[in-house]
Design a protein around this nucleic acid. Structure first.
Lengths: 247, 247
DNA sequence: CGGAATTTGTACGTATGTATG
DNA sequence: CCATACATACGTACAAATTCC
């Protein structure tokens, strides 16, 4: 009675311990991109577990985008450079199981890209400004297929210019999630040509604001442009939520 | 020559096919939270693969937070309700391998929570407003340990009131990532009491703005408050990036 | 309360296709 | 082309854990 307070023990699987150790080595930088893990047979000796256990751990690491293993590779699994694939995957899952509405996704994109613009207007270099201008030029000359590529390129430069890697990755992830999820929902726009022309005009205005260093203006113009583009696809009752971001 | 153009085939692992099928069933809602998968032995018959292959698939699904399996459970693996754990994990990994700076993380939090405030000021119910007020009251009476709980509770209500589930989940994830990562970096503040008092005052101002329906003001006040709190910990040269969000 | 039945966790062996030198 | 080492996948076996009678 009154002895030491023991804590409940959570039995932790063998493969989990392996995942933890390798993950720690990668995240701490001890194992950089391109580095090789030992072969599965060696790993089972090092961790003194069976082959199955090693393999289960490797599968988890692989699903998190940290390593990749190929059959026949004389070296072991390869440590991969960081990729937002895992983040992309979990956000897509979130979008599907939480049944996110189109307006929620669009709203999120408005928030993140507007923030990127706000920062980019202050922090962009001359070179990045030129890249943005070049992307807008490509939008003008693009056809239906290459238009969105140029659009993505523009916002990609903006995100890079924001100087925030987290914003850069997340804008990219969110944009592709949005595009992927609405691809089916949105029937091909009847007046696609008109939409493209208006989008180009909007991008030129946004670019001018970034060039002038007016971040709030650039962000405002962008939000308006996104609203104009998607409002028609969003149910009436969800539109007020989008409008709340237009001030 | 000139025959049909064949496409390169990407060999896809057996376990991947299993993951895809079960994932699809869960994300489409065919398998809801609480549902049970067949036992591993049954699954190996259904998919006509070996047990190891089934297990590798289950491990991946488990690491994505979709299912959970316990030893001895006569039912199969359990389908879990959605949890942002996977999102949290990938964002933590991103933060570590991309070596995100404190200012990048704080900046991201400023963006997301400010957006939540902007929306909440318009869309909040009276009930939510009362919850926010109650959280602020708890901050006043809190000690060092419970203070941040009340703080989190406040922002959690705000995120819910934003009406955007994506924003709600992401603010939560980002906040805990920030807290987790700076826990070690930041030495216990010497003037913790003063910081707490100022934080309470800021929250009262923010709450008043939300009550008045002035989203932009609430967002501005919040960004300023976050800046004041963290600026001292951020290297001089990174501060301008944070200041860019204060307009 | 206890023991039987079932399931997961883990170990081990083997066959096969593949990449490297 | 061959030899080697590897990942992939299969099958069996047993221990530990859980449920149910």
């Amino acid at each position: 009675m009154g002895g030491p307070r023991f804590e409940p023990v959570r039995t932790v699987r063998a493969y989990e311990r392996i995942v933890e150790q390798i993950e720690e080595a990668i995240e701490s930088g001890a194992l950089g991109p391109g580095a090789r893990l030992a072969s599965e047979r060696e790993l089972m000796v090092q961790f003194s577990v069976s082959r199955s256990t090693v393999r289960e751990a490797l599968r988890v690491l692989q699903s998190r985008g940290l390593v990749r293993s190929r059959p026949g590779d004389p070296n072991g699994a390869e440590v991969l450079p960081f990729s937002p694939a895992a983040l992309h995957k979990s956000m897509t899952t979130l979008a599907r199981v939480a049944e996110l509405s189109l307006s929620e996704l669009v709203q999120f994109r408005m928030v993140l890209d507007a923030a990127a613009l706000l920062l980019a207007a202050r922090l962009r270099t001359e070179e990045q400004l030129e890249e943005m201008a070049a992307a807008v030029e490509r939008m003008k000359e693009a056809d239906r297929d290459t238009f969105s590529d140029a659009d993505v390129a523009f916002h990609d430069v903006v995100a890079r210019a924001s100087g925030n890697k987290l914003i850069q990755v997340c804008t990219d992830v969110v944009r592709s999630v949005v595009v992927g999820l609405i691809a089916g929902k949105i029937a091909a726009a009847p007046d696609e040509e008109a939409l493209m022309r208006r989008s180009i005009a909007h991008h030129e205005e946004v670019l001018a604001a970034v060039r002038a260093g007016d971040g709030p203006l650039a962000a405002r113009l962008f939000r308006r442009s996104v609203y104009d583009y998607y409002a028609g696809y969003v149910p009436e009752e969800e539109r007020i939520a989008l409008q709340a971001l237009l001030e």
